[in-house]
Computed example of a mutant assay.
Amino acid sequence: MSEPSPVQLPGAVSNDPTAPGRKEDHIELAFDSQVDHGTLDDRFDYEPLLAAHPATGSLPPINWGDHTMRAPLWVSSMTGGTEKAFTINHNLARAVGEFGLGMGLGSCRSLLYDDHRYRDFNVRPVAGSGVPIFGNLGAAQVQHLIDQGQLGMIPQLIDALDLDGLIVHVNPLQEWLQPEGDRFTVAPIVTIRTLIEELPELPLIVKEVGQGMGPASLRALLELPLLALDTAANGGTNFSKLELFRSDDLARSAYGGLVRAGHSATEMVRQINGLTMDDTLTVRCQNLIVSGGVQGFLDGYYLTEIATLPAIYGQASAFLRHAREDYDSLHRYVASQIRGLELAKAYLHPRR
């Protein structure tokens, strides 16, 4: 008896060369692909029936000051003033321009007194004119400029680098633990209010540096006309802990517990949500950057979606890991994050 002829469906391709290998993969990998129900991500409802696969570039645009971002992803402030910083910052700026993101530079303090490392920070020619890029100074440095009557140096810095505004990082624990750190002589909120009064047209972002902020500090910032509040929560890169690594054994023993103080990004977003519902508070801050412990697009998507303020999310160490030498690695990382955001938006509904 002869073998029966294979069934041919109308319009079917007669030969699928990938089928045997694909099916073999499925057999071999099935046992390694079990998911423990205890590890399910309970932040989302997965709704597979309600959307087609999203088109590349389908994220809604985001208004950010004078610019429009194409994805809700912010390159958090990292570095400057070293030879490695030139490669890192220029790779990051290239990705920011290519994908339509936003970027904060590392501390620009050195440029106030010496232009030797100017090229490290001069990233506008790489990123292009269509994306937001912000300078960065510490609260202690801003207060020093106030005390010296030199606040005019800030607009000069912004103009020299063709930036869109300034980030002020508030870091009392880092400064205290840093061997060569500054000492705050004025409460940072007073410094920030004075800066706004003296330079009211300067777009301003205020952030911590890896500890986060409690509700009283958040309330004080929400009342100010900031472009954004950046959580810089505890859970990601913590600059207080970084400084302890630079200290001696006694300092690490005495102050080590301080690095565990602070607030997570999720806690801070929920605190801010509650504060925005407080009828006694006039919210003048326009946007939120959720950063600190944001490990990838699922964290970023969830936290920005549950936020009541218009929100984007920031990352530092993940970008740094891919930006140190190879732009191709950084390009692939950013592309995967944005594609993940598109998929999440199509199929995952955050549980609030």
Rank of each mutant, 00 (worst) to 15 (best):
I189C: 04
Y333A: 05
G300K: 02
M69K: 04
F319Y: 01
A187M: 08
Q174I: 00
G100P: 02
A55G: 06
G214R: 05
D25E: 08
A335W: 15
L343H: 15
G138M: 05
N238C: 14
Q156E: 15
T237Y: 12
V186T: 15
A228F: 07
A316T: 08
L173R: 04
M103E: 09
H349R: 13
E342F: 12
H53F: 12
D249K: 11
F297E: 09
A335Y: 14
G38R: 10
I62C: 05
V283R: 06
S329C: 12
Q8F: 15
G149M: 02
V123T: 08
P72S: 06
S247M: 08
L173I: 04
T308E: 10
H37K: 15
I154E: 00
E267Y: 13
R124C: 06
L226T: 02
A95I: 06
K345M: 14
W64R: 00
P179G: 09
T194S: 05
L105G: 01
F121M: 07
Q271H: 11
L227R: 09
F319T: 08
D162Y: 03
G314P: 03
K23N: 11
A51V: 02
R351V: 14
N171E: 08
I167D: 00
E201D: 15
R252Q: 14
M69D: 01
Y327P: 10
R284D: 08
F245P: 11
N15R: 12
L320V: 10
W64E: 04
R183A: 13
D25L: 13
K345T: 15
L250G: 14
K207D: 01
H53L: 15
L59K: 05
N238S: 12
G212R: 07
L229R: 09
N234L: 15
F44C: 00
L73G: 00
W64V: 04
P54I: 01
R193N: 01
E83G: 02
D278K: 09
Q34V: 03
S2W: 10
K207Y: 02
L226M: 07
Q315T: 07
D249R: 10
V294Q: 00
Y255G: 12
I88H: 03
E267D: 11
D249T: 15
G80N: 10
E197A: 11
G236R: 15
N91Y: 07
T266D: 13
R109L: 04
E175D: 13
P172L: 00
P203R: 00
H331S: 12
E305Y: 01
S33Q: 14
H331Q: 10
A19V: 05
K345Y: 13
S33P: 04
G257L: 10
A12R: 13
H37T: 12
P60W: 04
S240Y: 11
V290H: 06
G235R: 09
N171Q: 12
R260M: 13
G11I: 10
E325D: 15
L49V: 11
C108T: 10
G210L: 10
A95Y: 00
S329I: 03
A52V: 03
L50R: 07
D278V: 08
Y347M: 05
Q141S: 14
A316H: 04
M1F: 14
G135T: 03
E3G: 12
L112Y: 08
A51W: 02
Q8M: 12
Y302L: 00
